[in-house]
Amino acid sequence: MSSAVGAAPPRHAASPSPSDPVHRRRSYRLGRWDIKYSPYLYVAPFFVLFGIFGLFPVLYTVWVSLFEYDLLSDSKVFVGLENYRVVLDDAQFWNAAYNTIGMFVVSTVPQLLVALMIANLLNRQMRARTVLRMGIVIPNITSVAAVGIIFALIFADRYGLVNWVLGTVGIDPIAWRDNRYASWFAVATMVDWRWTGYNALIYLGAMQAIPKDLYESASLDGASTWRQFWKITVPLIRPTIIFTIIISTIGGLQLFTEPLMYGYGLIRGGASNEFQTLAMYIYERTFTGNFEYGTGAAMSWLLFLMIIVFALINFALVRRSVKGEQK
């Protein structure tokens, strides 16, 4: 550990006691220990907590996924990888995966693009700038359950606001829950309503770190605002974009509450599982019906792997497509 910490003078070495060689040796040793071990102590709380609440459950899930574990009767039979075979063979699992990825794409792509635009607008000189900047995160601090209830009513099939508005302009009511893509759209609206402002704020933070003279010289060279945005702003906040995409991937693939509330709290997510996500299906298998703890654990692991794969793919895609000028 030849870090910068090691370069700092040990605190104990500063205490003067030259006359006593034993004391001096001891304080020297203490100082060495301080340098060597205290950094580990400082970061330990995180790793201890992570080990208890993060790592252990994850590993225990692996263990459970190897059993046919009925929570209700508490019977546990070792079945090896059988649970994984069952899950991979299950049409409802793939349906849930399809819904999850579909809703993720439908919600995240517009969400991040709009967030980028909003951040760009807020990055200008304008009146009441702080109020507006704070305002866009307000949706994010509302309770997700409350959002779910309200949007479920807005998109209600019969007495819903959206269908009523459509009706006044002569459009037939949309079956918001029976039509798969309509339901995805509605759920995506909910997700975007909450998260667009949050991402915009993160982008805004990154944009403020871009030196203004870059824009000035670009203007002098005759670059339009639009061109400045794509050629200066976006490349320079690339690390932030990658961050938001990975965070959105993790959050989006774990989507649970919004579609659950949207389907009036029914875990099956639509009569034919039109908007049941993987997280919902895991819950359904684990905590209702047959209480198949092992199967649920296996599915959780597959979801975990899926998130890693998706995060890596997105990372690679973004890195390639948004190339910075600073090579």
Binding site: S143, A145, M261
Partner: peptide, 21 residues
């Protein structure tokens, strides 16, 4: 028991927070 709304809200919020039992 299936009156939805509030109870579901509690459930959903609980799960969303990642809290187990």
């Amino acid at each position: 028991r299936r009156l939805r709304t509030v109870a579901v809200a509690a459930l959903a919020a609980g799960v969303a927070l990642g809290s187990t039992a």
